[in-house]
Design a protein around this nucleic acid. Structure first.
Length: 218
DNA sequence: CGCCAGGGCCTCA
DNA sequence: TGAGGCCATGGC
């Protein structure tokens, strides 16, 4: 049993609450769509690129189910071009919108986490991380999100290295209090640490977790 | 110029 | 079930 809460609290103290997922939309359903689309667009892509693409979609008033269904593949892919893998991502967004026709927001909110997770994973372009991001940030269900940043930070920090996504997820879910707010913040804070300090080439000077880190790069 | 970014699918052992 | 190739643009 690792006390991950000590790490969590140090991160909160250092970076402050992150209030993820960052969105422009205020309307509840638009926000839902924006988070899901953003989760697809950010696959292996810097968030900065996603912001500009989301802004373009928003300016064209495309951030709703009906419009995203109608918009042509060519227009959609051109609007998200800057995020890379743009044809793949346009296809993925279309697949997700199609999924929503049979599984609207209200239904997903009502269903149990595991049931929704299984459904999401069956959609083209939604893998483990994207599914968990949608569950946690778009549907407010306590599903811990594992990304490459999480693996990098914690393999250095604790000297652990699990093989599968499920093992990583289980590790966090069995060692962190099952709380949607904490799951959201913890993941966001891990990413913040990874972007600013625990980079591929780590910058250990000034890292808030220096005294806890096994690697202790100097 | 090369490396990297809030992954996932497909193929092939 | 795991490793490797592929998708691709933009920031630094």
């Amino acid at each position: 049993m690792h006390n991950l809460h000590t790490i969590y609290e140090k991160l909160v103290e250092f970076f402050g609450y992150q209030r993820w997922w960052p969105t422009f939309s205020k309307n509840k359903k638009e926000k839902f769509i924006e988070i899901c689309v953003g989760a697809i667009l950010t696959q292996n892509t810097a968030w900065k690129q996603v912001e500009t693409a989301i802004k373009k979609l928003r300016e064209k008033n495309l951030l709703n189910q009906e419009k995203l269904e109608k918009v042509s593949f060519a227009e959609l892919s051109s609007l998200i071009k800057n995020t890379g893998f743009y044809k793949e991502k346009a296809r993925k967004i279309k697949a997700f919108i199609n999924f929503l026709k049979k599984n609207p927001y209200e239904k997903l909110k009502r269903l149990k986490l595991e049931e929704v997770r299984k459904k999401l994973l069956s959609v083209y372009g939604i893998g483990n991380e994207t599914a968990d991001a949608i569950l946690l940030y778009a549907l407010d269900k306590p599903s811990f999100v594992i990304d490459n940043y999480t693996k990098r930070v914690f393999s250095r920090l604790l000297g652990i290295d699990f093989k599968s996504y499920e093992e990583w997820k289980d590790f966090f879910e069995s060692n962190v209090k099952k709380d949607t707010f904490i799951y959201k913040e913890f993941h966001a804070l891990i990413d913040e640490l990874a972007k600013n300090y625990c980079k591929k080439k780590p910058i250990c000077k000034g890292c808030p977790l220096n005294d806890l880190c096994k690697k202790n790069f100097k």
